[in-house]
Simulated scan of single mutants.
Amino acid sequence: MRLARLIDWPLFEARFGALYVEGAGRPGLPTRLMVALHLLKHMDGLSDEAVCARYLDSPYVQAFCGESHFQHALPLDRSSMTRWRQRVGAERMEVLLAETLAAAERAGAVAEKHYERVTIDTTVQPKAVSHPTDSKLLQRGIEALARMARKHGITLRQSYRRVARAARREAARLHHGGKFREAEARVRRLRTWFGRLARDIVRKMAGNAKAKAASAETLGLINRLLRQKRSDRGADKLYSLHAPEEACIGKGKARTRFEFGVKVSVATTNAQAPGGQFVLGMQSLPGNPYDGHTLAGQIE
Rank of each mutant, 00 (worst) to 15 (best):
residue 242 H to W: 00
residue 272 Q to K: 10
residue 146 A to V: 06
residue 299 I to R: 14
residue 151 K to G: 01
residue 238 L to D: 01
residue 118 V to G: 06
residue 297 G to K: 15
residue 132 P to K: 12
residue 167 A to I: 01
residue 254 A to L: 04
residue 228 Q to A: 09
residue 221 L to S: 02
residue 159 S to M: 01
residue 137 L to H: 02
residue 76 L to R: 08
residue 268 T to V: 15
residue 264 V to N: 09
residue 31 T to C: 14
residue 6 L to N: 03
residue 285 L to S: 07
residue 283 Q to I: 08
residue 196 R to V: 13
residue 50 A to H: 14
residue 208 N to T: 02
residue 202 V to F: 07
residue 203 R to W: 04
residue 2 R to I: 12
residue 165 R to Q: 05
residue 67 E to Y: 06
residue 163 V to R: 12
residue 127 K to H: 07
residue 146 A to E: 05
residue 288 N to L: 05
residue 154 I to T: 13
residue 94 E to N: 11
residue 201 I to P: 05
residue 220 G to R: 09
residue 7 I to N: 10
residue 87 R to E: 05
residue 77 D to P: 11
residue 257 R to Y: 01
residue 145 L to C: 11
residue 207 G to C: 11
residue 183 A to R: 06
residue 189 R to G: 15
residue 40 L to A: 15
residue 90 A to M: 04
residue 169 R to V: 03
residue 197 L to D: 08
residue 209 A to C: 04
residue 141 G to I: 00
residue 224 R to N: 07
residue 215 S to G: 06
residue 260 F to G: 01
residue 20 Y to A: 14
residue 133 T to M: 05
residue 84 W to F: 15
residue 84 W to H: 10
residue 179 K to E: 15
residue 16 F to Y: 15
residue 243 A to R: 11
residue 23 G to D: 10
residue 240 S to A: 13
residue 279 V to S: 01
residue 271 A to T: 02
residue 212 K to I: 08
residue 165 R to W: 01
residue 181 R to E: 14
residue 264 V to W: 08
residue 242 H to G: 09
residue 50 A to Y: 11
residue 225 L to G: 04
residue 255 R to K: 05
residue 15 R to H: 12
residue 219 L to E: 04
residue 269 T to E: 07
residue 1 M to Q: 05
residue 206 A to Y: 02
residue 2 R to D: 14
residue 235 A to F: 00
residue 47 S to V: 04
residue 74 L to D: 09
residue 274 P to Y: 02
residue 42 H to F: 14
residue 101 L to M: 10
residue 228 Q to I: 10
residue 6 L to S: 14
residue 55 Y to A: 04
residue 204 K to F: 06
residue 186 R to W: 06
residue 10 P to R: 01
residue 266 V to E: 05
residue 142 I to P: 13
residue 163 V to T: 13
residue 205 M to H: 07
residue 212 K to C: 09
residue 196 R to N: 10
residue 230 R to A: 08
residue 62 Q to P: 10
residue 255 R to L: 05
residue 15 R to L: 12
residue 253 K to E: 05
residue 283 Q to D: 11
residue 143 E to L: 02
residue 161 R to T: 14
residue 109 A to T: 00
residue 294 T to Q: 12
residue 36 A to I: 05
residue 168 R to N: 07
residue 38 H to T: 10
residue 18 A to K: 09
residue 254 A to N: 13
residue 283 Q to L: 15
residue 11 L to D: 03
residue 92 R to T: 02
residue 241 L to T: 08
residue 131 H to R: 06
residue 149 A to Y: 04
